[in-house]
Amino acid sequence: MIILRNIEKVYPLKGGVFYALRNISLEIKEGEFVSIMGPSGSGKSTLLHILGLHDSAWGGEYFLHGEAVHQLDKKKRFDLQKKHIGFVFQSYHLLDDLTVYENLEIPLSYRDIAKKERESVVCDVLDKFGIVGKKDLYPSQLSGGQQQLVGVARALIAKPSLILADEPTGNLHSDQGREIMRLFKQLNAEGTTIIQVTHSEENATYGSRIIRLADGLIISK
């Protein structure tokens, strides 16, 4: 599903260049649940942003579902991202002014899906995640765990084949964190490929593989 070859991310500085990532080559197959780990500044998040197509200033080759990302223009990368990738954020990043229902609906509206169809999809997801009773609440009326549950539901609603999660349990207490990880496990079992960045060894155990980074280099995969 994902093939990276010699990915490099360089920041030019006055005293010379700084390599945030160097010589990253790896392959992630469809259906994997991969955890990226490493100390602060090791390049975990940088790698996640490259995988998520947020960052376009890098060198090397990146294939996603067979598409050579490194050869695509900005618009095609954006279309590829919309089609295949869902994001889960550490700070949930629900939109404060929208209800749970509307937060779930918004990725669909950005994909120009008709209102009727949106209603049906959102209702399915609300039901699947057991949050039908919360659909008219605003994020501020939910607990942290509930907010992240909505965050995961939102990431999944457009049926992406790949979920990228940046410290998804970083702001949750341990019970809530475990609940989210169990959810990820279940989603993975249903066929969604998941890549998470985490500091937690416990969370990493939910996945099928751990990639460790240090100083921008892969030290194990």
Partner: peptide
């Protein structure tokens, strides 16, 4: 701008 960036991450195009 944080919220706008989230919307972009959720699939909002520049036009949207």
């Amino acid at each position: 701008e944080g919220e706008t960036a989230i919307r972009a991450a959720l699939g909002a195009s520049r036009r949207q």
